[in-house]
Simulated scan of single mutants.
Amino acid sequence: MDKVNILIVDDDKNICKLINLYLKKAEYETTICHDGSKAIDLIQKTKVDLVLLDLMIPEINGWEVCKLLKIEHNIPVIMVSARDVIKDKIAGFDAGADDYIVKPFDPEELVARVKARLKSRTSEIRNIKEKNVVTIHNLAIDMDQYQVRMDGQEVDLKPKEIQLLHFLAKNKNIVFTREQLLEKLWDYNNAGDTRTVDVHIKCLREKLKNTTGGWKIKTIWGVGYKMEVQ
Rank of each mutant, 00 (worst) to 15 (best):
R117D: 05
K87I: 12
V155P: 05
R113V: 00
E109G: 04
H166D: 03
V134L: 06
D193A: 06
E161G: 10
D98L: 08
Y146Q: 11
T177K: 12
K89R: 13
I86P: 00
Y100D: 01
K115N: 13
F176Q: 02
K202F: 10
L157K: 09
M150N: 05
A97Q: 04
P159R: 03
V85C: 00
Y146K: 11
Y100N: 01
V197S: 00
K87C: 10
F105K: 02
L181Y: 04
A82N: 03
A191V: 14
R117N: 12
K129F: 15
N132V: 04
G192M: 01
M150T: 01
N189C: 09
K131G: 11
K158I: 05
E154D: 10
E130M: 12
D88H: 12
Q147C: 14
R178V: 07
I201P: 03
N173H: 06
K170A: 11
D142Q: 06
N127D: 09
K172F: 04
N190T: 15
G96W: 05
S81L: 01
A97E: 04
F167V: 02
Q180A: 14
D187R: 13
D142F: 03
T194I: 15
Q147E: 12
Y146G: 06
V199E: 06
R205W: 06
A169F: 00
D198T: 10
V155S: 04
E124W: 05
T196A: 10
L204I: 03
E124Q: 11
G192I: 02
